[in-house]
Amino acid sequence: MIRFALRRLISLTLSLIVASIVIFAVIEIIPGDPAAFMLGVNARPDTVAALREELGLTASAPARYLAWVTGMLTGDFGTSYTYKTPVAGMIADRIWVSFPLAIYALILSTLIAFPAGIYAAARRGRLGDVSVMAATQLGVAVPNFWFAMIIVSIFSLKLGWFNAIGFPGWDAGFWPAIKALTLPAIALALPQAAILARVMRSSLLDMLNEDFMRTARAKGLSRRQALWRHAVRNAMIPVLTILGLQFAFLLAGGIIIEQVFYLPGLGRLIFQSIQARDLIVVESVVMLLVFTVIVVNFAVDIAYAAVDPRLRGRR
């Protein structure tokens, strides 16, 4: 087990190193000089040169890469070109919007998907199953930002239950903050719930065909009892995998949703920074997201291995 964990840890480190190189390289290749962008069309060449010097853009690419990576290792994410404030502080502020939003959406998506998936599997082929599947088909097909506009026009503009935009901050209290995140979380959650419900259903149906289900029925359990006690538990493994992947997706999906709902989260930060060529911010935020995803995957791997000894030898 220890050796397995160590092997995974080495591959995690390698993944992070490769990711950092790729992120840095891609951002180097994108055309657009941050200094020229900040100074606009009337700037004189000597002004742009002075700003490049001030921003530390005159050093060679490998030197800047090393400075960035070693800085991150010590918790120093650099200073934003445009905002002129430490990137670490900016990220810390924004995380308190994006992570709660992703978690909120994940909870909503689970709460919708599990009952829907189980219900559909239990009523396979019948009207209930068909309607749930039709609804999920629609949920998968509808883009979340479009769905966001629809719920804003209903719940904010028509009914006036929610503010159309904005986030009051956690200082305003837990419930006002949660209220402001509700519509965005629903918009993020529903398409994910649709996917999750479909996975839940098909995974359950696979289980229902397994031998142990026949055994369970043979020992006298009712269809429903067998479903709940044996099938659901076993069907959870692929579902949890999807759920882990979805957390990453929800964090990234926030980029658009945060624009539509005007939330000061990481997604909005990335969006604005890319437009402003605030490269150091883009690099660091993307690296943080990659780190999150890799660490979540690592944790999931370790958890599987802890539960299922067969996996330890295989990898």
């Binding site: 506009m149 804003v152 503009l157 503010n163 935009i165």
Partner: peptide, 10 residues
Amino acid sequence: AAFAAVMAED
């Protein structure tokens, strides 16, 4: 979002 913000008087 701009339309919604003005319409909802935010």
